[in-house]
Design a protein around this nucleic acid. Structure first.
Length: 327
DNA sequence: TCTCATGATTCTTT
DNA sequence: AAAGAATCATGAGA
């Protein structure tokens, strides 16, 4: 049932010719979001049509074979009925068995077709192929958040949603961005130092304004200059427990082959062949979990000792211990 | 066209 | 399941 729905949605199992390709086009457009480059899509459509044709041909063959076999068995039974009594129930049972057998084969055909479509999609509609840099404004907003939460740069689900809205991107893009940012920042703090200072200063000014507006009265105690230089508040996984530095056994990535029950004779092979010809991702046929945009969320520990030494904390003191900036 | 930046995906670790 | 790490693929500037 699920397979049926999917094939229908992909325009594979829809009505023949004409309507079918329209459905395929719709599927392509839907999958690609804003279909801007029609070249790739037309290519995609062509391949999809190819798959679709094979699917229909094979399906027809199966149906025909099923009918032929049924009549054959019926004839046999009829012949036997001359020598022994055969109840209509028995005939019915036989027909049922045959149909079940054939439908299970059809099932496998459908499954293989689904796999083929998935691979095709992953090949042609891979988002990486259409990567666009975020707008400057969006990057600004994200950076602002990141550097003002440097001690714990793990936005909550709500925060992500808000950021996503502000930046006109999706929540998972926000998650990706933070994932990338954290790792890249950690890897090379020096490189980001300047950026960190910039944004820290920015947020400091904002915070100062906000504070000034809120407090109003107390003008007496001048809050020690928010960020004197080093903005990076969190410490690297330095020395101590070697962190990510060591331990990296070089294991050739071994794709464990989880054969996806697709040994349905040559029909399936034909489909595979089409894919291997068109996409060249034959490997992907083996692992069938594909394209699951896992959204990241929640917070873990940015560093084990999450000393909440807020980035621009107004408290002076030994908060910024190691500011070993090279300048 | 070379190189670096960057968004996305995949695999590994926790 | 989420975060980290590695990697891929493209964008963009030199």
């Amino acid at each position: 049932m699920r397979l049926d729905n999917m094939l229908l949605a992909e325009g594979v199992s829809g009505p023949e010719k004409g309507g079918g390709s329209a459905a395929a086009a719709a599927a392509a457009a839907a999958a690609g979001g804003a279909g801007d480059n029609s070249i790739e899509h037309s290519d995609y459509r062509a391949k999809l049509t190819q798959i679709r044709q094979i699917y229909h041909t094979e399906l027809e063959k199966y149906e025909q074979a099923c009918n032929e076999f049924t009549t054959h068995v019926m004839n046999l039974l009829r012949e036997q009925s001359r020598t022994r009594p055969i109840s209509p129930k028995e005939i019915e049972r036989m027909v049922g068995i045959i149909h079940r057998k054939f439908s299970s084969i059809q099932m496998q055909l459908k499954q293989s077709t689904c796999e083929a479509v998935m691979i095709l999609r992953s090949r042609f509609l891979d988002a990486r192929r259409k990567r666009r840099n975020f707008s400057k404004q969006a990057t600004e907003i994200l950076n602002e958040y990141f550097y003002s939460h440097l001690s714990n740069p793990y936005p909550s689900e709500e925060a992500k949603e808000e950021l996503a809205k502000k930046c006109s991107i999706t929540v998972s893009q926000v998650s990706n961005w933070f994932g990338n940012k954290r790792i890249r920042y950690k890897k090379n703090i020096g490189k980001f130092q300047e950026e960190a200072n910039l944004y820290a200063a920015k947020t400091a000014v904002t915070a100062a304004h906000a504070a000034a507006a809120a407090v109003q009265n107390s003008q007496t105690n001048s809050p020690t200059t928010p960020n004197s230089g080093s903005a990076g508040s969190f410490s690297l996984p330095h020395s101590g427990d070697m962190g990510f530095l060591g331990m990296q056994s070089l294991n050739g990535h071994s794709y464990q082959g989880a054969q996806v029950g697709a040994n349905v004779q040559s029909q399936v092979d034909t489909l595979r062949h089409v894919i291997s010809q068109t996409a060249g991702y034959s490997d992907a046929l083996r692992g069938n979990t594909m394209y699951s945009p896992h959204g990241l969320s929640a917070n873990g520990g940015w560093q084990d000792a999450t000393t909440p030494s807020s980035v621009i904390s107004l408290t002076e003191g030994p908060g910024s211990v190691h500011s070993d900036t090279s300048n």
